[in-house]
Design a protein around this nucleic acid. Structure first.
Length: 429
RNA sequence: UCCUCGGUAGCUCAAUGGUAGAGCAAUCGGCUGUUAACCGAUUUGUUGGGGGUUCAAGUCCCUCCCGAGGAGCCA
């Protein structure tokens, strides 16, 4: 019976067949140890020369790393085997022989691995990181489904920008210009009036010439938007969301966290409510750490790290000066120079994970803000309509999925948290 | 876009301006419990491209290309 390595433990004592790829081989004159990966896991296969056909032993001798193989044998527990279970082979065959596989079990540089991203995916740490990505995406869907949100996918091709055109990828659209979406938010707000609680999750694109470990030109965002949700409710939603996702990762991706040697105690702190500071207080905290920053300045990457490490937990920064934030954010009634916006900063240098706000629901105020930002009114007419036909207070946020996965998995660079990263000047493979 | 560092064998890296080398991989041989197995042998080069200085350049200078890290901007 052909089975997955993942389920091998429940087949101890049975004769099983496994198909997969050879990840490593150690061989002597009369016994061979083959590590076989089938996608669900890796198992050690022991082949004794005396117990298999001449043909099978010849295949053991000639098999190379990453060749496709098929093995039949008896599954059995053995503490000498990596994983605790191994297969004592009765038959072994090479199905497709690999020659000159570029990635060895020794060290490689980043540039070389990125050129071979399509093969690098087979490596254990890459598989664990991307398995965590899969768990995170599933958890996101479950979180919103359980809370009765409706999935509303926003378009990738858009006629206008959300916040200026300098960071947009431009493309041709039947003779007109179109841009790749950098956020689904503007499209979610009208959908709120149809469904109340909505979210979208998909790729977004930013043509920023950023070249750091925290940037991709194509990255995924999940963005909830909720009608009649105020700023306080928004922060609670974000707390619940992050706590739920972290809990899921700890619960369902434990073996992957182990492969990645992630310090799980850091992740276990991501629960309950998170500390909050206003922008004003955040600047004072930074100044108390000796950082040269003034009220009114925006945070740099280092500033975010210092702030989050100050609390050793994710921290909300709220009530930013109006000038630092986007045109659609609702002013604070108590201090009209600030907006009801929040950023969630992750510890350990993973930076801004979430950005969100209560949105302006007053038509005339939004119109005034558009003009103040020198944005054209015509392309935003449909967006203004949300305030014209049954306006309602509403709030939402966006979370960068890769940044969250990097935080969970302990990845040093976002490029390892997405199967095929797109970065400044890099689009191969 | 700017700053810093780098580009030598398939990979990771050495090499006072003076004969280009090691480990790993690969190939062949040995080994019945290996854990990135081990032991022996063999093969591997337009030193990123172009120009210059010099008796002599991987090494120094100029220039271009490519890569890595960071800044700004952002999620």
């Amino acid at each position: 019976m052909t089975i997955s390595v993942r389920h091998l433990k429940s087949h101890a004592g049975e004769t099983v067949t496994v198909r997969g790829w050879l990840s490593n081989k150690r061989r002597s004159g009369k016994i061979g140890f083959l590590q076989i990966r089938d996608g669900s896991g890796i198992v050690q296969v022991v082949v004794s020369r005396a117990e298999v056909s001449e043909e099978a032993w010849e295949d053991v001798k000639r098999v190379t790393q990453e060749s496709t193989v098929r093995v039949t044998g008896i599954a059995r527990a053995d503490e000498r085997a990596p994983g605790g279970v191994e297969i004592q082979a009765t038959d072994f065959a090479v199905r497709s022989l690999t020659e000159d596989y570029p990635i060895t079990n020794k060290e490689h540089g980043t540039a070389f691995l990125m050129e071979h991203r399509h093969l690098w995916l087979r490596s254990s740490k890459q598989r664990s990181t991307l398995a965590i990505r899969s768990e995170v995406c599933q958890a996101i869907r479950d979180f919103f489904y359980e809370r009765e949100f409706t999935l509303v996918d926003s378009p990738i091709l858009t006629p206008t920008s959300c916040e200026g055109t300098s960071t947009l990828f431009e493309t041709e659209y039947f003779g007109d210009k179109a841009y790749l979406s950098q956020s689904g938010q503007l499209y979610l707000e009208p959908a709120c009036a149809a469904f109340g609680k909505v979210y979208c999750m998909g790729p977004t694109f930013r043509a920023e010439k950023s070249k750091t470990r925290r940037h991709l030109t194509e990255f995924w965002m999940v963005e909830p938007e909720v009608a009649f949700l105020d700023f306080e409710g928004l922060i609670r939603l974000a707390e619940d969301f992050i706590g739920f996702l972290a809990g899921r990762v700890i619960e369902r991706a434990a073996t992957h966290l182990e492969v990645l040697e992630r310090d799980v105690s850091k992740l276990e702190k991501i629960t309950g409510s998170f500390p909050r500071v206003t922008y004003y207080e955040a600047i004072e905290i930074l100044q108390s750490h000796g950082i040269d920053i003034a009220q009114g300045d925006d945070f740099g990457a280092e500033d975010e790290t210092v702030l989050a490490n100050h609390f050793d937990r994710p921290v909300f920064v709220t009530h930013f000066p109006t000038d630092l934030k986007a045109f659609y954010m609702q002013p604070d009634a108590d201090n009209p120079d600030t907006v009801l916006a929040m950023d969630l900063l992750a510890p350990e240098g993973y930076g801004e994970i979430i950005g969100g706000s209560q949105r302006i629901h007053d038509h005339d105020l939004l119109l005034e803000r558009l003009k103040h930002h020198e944005l054209p009114i015509e392309p935003f007419q449909w967006y203004l309509d949300v305030r014209k036909y049954g306006s309602f207070p509403h709030s939402g946020f966006g979370m960068g999925i890769e940044r969250f996965i990097a935080w969970m998995s302990g990845a040093a660079h976002l490029r390892e948290t997405i199967p095929y990263p797109r970065m400044l000047y890099k689009i191969y493979p």
